[in-house]
Simulated scan of single mutants.
Amino acid sequence: MSASNPPGRLNRGVLALLGLMLVAAGGLTLATHFGWRGLFDPASTIVPGTGRPPTWVLYIITVVATLLGLLCLRWLAAQLVRRPRRRIWRLESDPDRGRTELATTTAVEPFADEIEKYPGVRAADASLTGAQNDATLTVVIHADQQASLAAIRHRLSTQALPRLRQALGLRALPTQVEFRFTGKTTTTVR
């Protein structure tokens, strides 16, 4: 059972379309070079005239090329940030009586929701990777600038993590916690 991966499908679709366009352009170039009938005249120019285009055309070309370059850089940056693949754990003690399957994303949703309720936390994202007997938890916490990271970390290690380990039936769960600060600051009214 594989997880749905819309960005992966989009990447494959865009790359397939780009590949087909390049194959068509290459075929058209070869056909023109060898002078096959019904296509372009190899002796003709690409654009009519030899004069320089108006200045506004050059500006538009520059803006479009810059935007296209920035979009390509954004796409490349998105490729570096990959989410772990969703896994399915089978929780069964007696296979003859049935089986229980648990998606790792489903297992950590309540955990992340609990962390988001901590004071100073704007958002939390958790991912559980690996097999059931060798799992690793990665937590990314987006916190306010004035948030007490020590208090968040203490509540995480004394409340949320023990509950998650108990719910999953794990003795140990190696955990990596990353804090990211939001640009927003909050003021407390007393």
Rank of each mutant, 00 (worst) to 15 (best):
T66L: 14
P110L: 14
L170K: 06
M1Q: 08
A112P: 10
G130K: 11
I115E: 07
T175W: 02
A65T: 08
T104E: 02
S93H: 15
T182M: 02
I115P: 12
S44A: 15
A150P: 01
R74W: 12
G120V: 08
R99D: 14
Q159I: 09
R12M: 07
D113L: 11
T45A: 12
V14T: 08
R83T: 14
V14W: 13
E92Q: 13
T185V: 06
L164D: 08
H142T: 15
T175G: 05
S148H: 00
R155G: 01
A25W: 00
W36D: 04
G183K: 09
W89I: 07
Q132W: 14
F111K: 05
A172W: 00
Q132F: 11
P84M: 09
G35K: 07
A147D: 00
T129Q: 14
L149S: 00
F181L: 15
L30R: 04
W56A: 06
E114N: 13
G51A: 13
P42L: 01
V23Y: 08
D41Q: 04
E178L: 01
R122V: 14
P53T: 04
A3F: 04
T188W: 05
A3Q: 12
R83E: 15
S4R: 05
G98T: 00
T32M: 01
D41S: 06
W89P: 12
P53H: 01
L102W: 00
T138Y: 03
K117L: 00
S93C: 07
R82L: 13
E116R: 13
W56K: 04
I115Y: 05
L137G: 10
E114H: 10
T187G: 11
E178T: 03
Q166Y: 10
R155Y: 02
L161V: 07
G169A: 01
E101K: 14
F179R: 09
V14I: 10
A103F: 10
I141A: 08
P174G: 08
L71F: 04
G183Y: 11
N133S: 14
D113I: 00
V64T: 05
L164P: 05
E178R: 10
L30Q: 01
L22N: 07
L17S: 06
K117N: 04
A78N: 12
A167E: 09
P162E: 12
G13D: 05
R90T: 05
L70R: 03
P110Q: 11
G69R: 07
G51H: 12
S44Y: 09
G13A: 10
G38S: 02
L39N: 02
R83Q: 15
L102A: 02
T66S: 11
R85K: 13
S2A: 04
I141N: 02
S127W: 11
T100K: 05
A172M: 07
T50V: 13
A143R: 06
A107R: 02
D96H: 12
E101Q: 13
L80M: 07
L170W: 09
P95I: 08
T186I: 14
V108C: 04
P42G: 03
R52D: 10
L156G: 02
T186S: 15
N11I: 13
A3Y: 09
A3M: 09
G35V: 01
R86G: 00
Q132R: 15
R190H: 10
P54A: 10
T129G: 07
L70W: 02
I141W: 01
A126L: 10
